[in-house]
């Protein structure tokens, strides 16, 4: 079947999609957006997290046919038009929150969504929000640092612009 949707603001189209295929597969293998990662394909790791109509979801659990005419934003869409890193992306690099980096794309989208809702989450809030994103390398400490750093920068940025 054919599936058309918007990915990172651009219309995309995939042909010959098998009906059982996931959005993750379509993104990675058909429309050239391999940033979202395929670590479990069972919703347990969060590496494939993308925004679907503004809500973070596991793209491995969305059937390709379900995204017809909808909007998807992936880790590739967190970078600005000039290719500059977004705030959350920069914080993850700066805090040393990236080791192998396989968990990173999902964590970035989930963190972006968290800070969108609440620019100054408590540690418990951060842990709850990221509890569906497994990381095997870092022990999460530097990820906590990265989210706190992104939060601080976001709040400082807001303060400055007000």
């Amino acid at each position: 079947m054919r599936v058309t949707f918007t990915a990172n603001g651009k219309p995309v189209e995939a042909d010959d999609v098998w009906e059982g295929e996931s959005l993750l597969y379509v993104l990675r293998e058909r429309v050239g957006l391999p940033g979202s990662k395929n670590a479990c394909e069972q919703g347990e790791c969060g590496s494939c997290t993308v925004y679907l109509d503004g809500v973070p979801v596991c793209s491995c659990l969305v059937a390709a046919g379900q995204v017809q005419d909808r909007e998807v934003r992936t880790v590739e869409g967190l970078t600005d038009e000039n290719g500059e890193l977004g705030l959350v992306q920069q914080a993850f690099v700066d805090a040393g929150a990236v080791q192998c980096g396989f968990c990173t794309p999902g964590l970035l989208v989930q963190t972006d969504a968290l800070l969108d809702q609440d620019a100054q989450p408590s540690d418990n809030d951060i842990r709850e929000a990221l509890s569906g994103n497994l990381c095997r390398c870092t022990g999460y400490e530097k990820i906590m640092d990265a989210v706190r750093l992104a939060s601080a920068r976001k709040c400082a940025g807001k303060g400055a612009s007000e």
Binding site: V57, Q110, A129
Partner: peptide, 9 residues
């Protein structure tokens, strides 16, 4: 249930 992502769907 599951995780925030699962609870969103």
């Amino acid at each position: 249930v599951g995780s925030p992502q699962i609870r969103n769907r």
